[in-house]
Design a protein around this nucleic acid. Sequence first.
DNA 1: CCGCGTCAAGTTCAT
DNA 2: ATGAACTTGACGCGG
Length: 311
Amino acid sequence: MIRLGYACSNTQLPSAAGTCRLKNATEEAILNLSRRNLSALKQILLWNRQNGIGLYRISSETIPFGSHPVNRLPWRRLLKPEFSELGRLIRKFKLRVSMHPGQYTVLNSIRETVVAASIAELEYHAELLDALSPDAAHKIILHLGGAYGDKKSATERFIRNFEKLSPSAKKRLVIENDEKNYTVADALSAAREIRVPVVLDVFHHRCNPSLQKQGLLRILELVATTWQPQDGPQKIHYSDQKKGGPPGSHSDSIDAAGFKRFYRCIRHLPLDIMLEVKDKEQSVLKLYRRIPTLDLKNNQQHKFQAFCRTP
DNA sequence: CCGCGTCAAGTTCAT
DNA sequence: ATGAACTTGACGCGG
């Protein structure tokens, strides 16, 4: 059973990532923006449900300056009704959500201030997901970080700093291979040490390959061993190279023919596939048209519900 | 009112 | 040394 999802925004609906400039970041502005973002998030999740989309990445900007000292709001308490309603929605419709901190979250930095800010950012992500659901299948996906010319000691630093995270952040953390520094093999060896799952980014893997004796299916199997029952179904990321763009940049839309070839190889697996493209939900709908069995509206929901843990 | 330069934050790589 | 690119738009100032 395959499910598709998209990241952070819907091209047809109001943004759920409204923010403001630091100099305007009063508590009132932050609270208003947070309310607006949670309301927009609700509309997106409802839209997803109506359109048979069970997977979605929540924007890191949902609570503006979520981990920044300027934000001293007890936002989780103030917005408890909103979070409860969203949580009910997610449970009722068996939706799966995730988050993906941006490039400034570098848990293995050589600078202590950067590590501290990264831990704060990860704790913010964990707290937001906790406010929605205690289910550990709602993940925080992170890259290993910088290489600093010495991946071995950089990875050791990542592992040391991971140990400083709260239980909630730890149970949600997943590491992803990247297009420059850390291959799938690198991510797997780090993940085995700290017992977290790995998200295989198929496109990054093509840019920055490893385990070249193994086919993609065998690599998916290897990565699958890092996912435990409480982690939910294995997740992967899928995107295409932007034509004429710099290597590693994401295309505007998913190439349906290419995806169809990929799908034929993996359709027997229980995978949640996050598409990373500019046109967001449009690519999901396009693939639903090309591959109707993917459309959850055409599917018996209980099939994939069996793979979802109920909290 | 609109367009486009800028935005909290880090790291890497090209020029 | 400087700046673009990567997750990504959206803010909001200046004309």
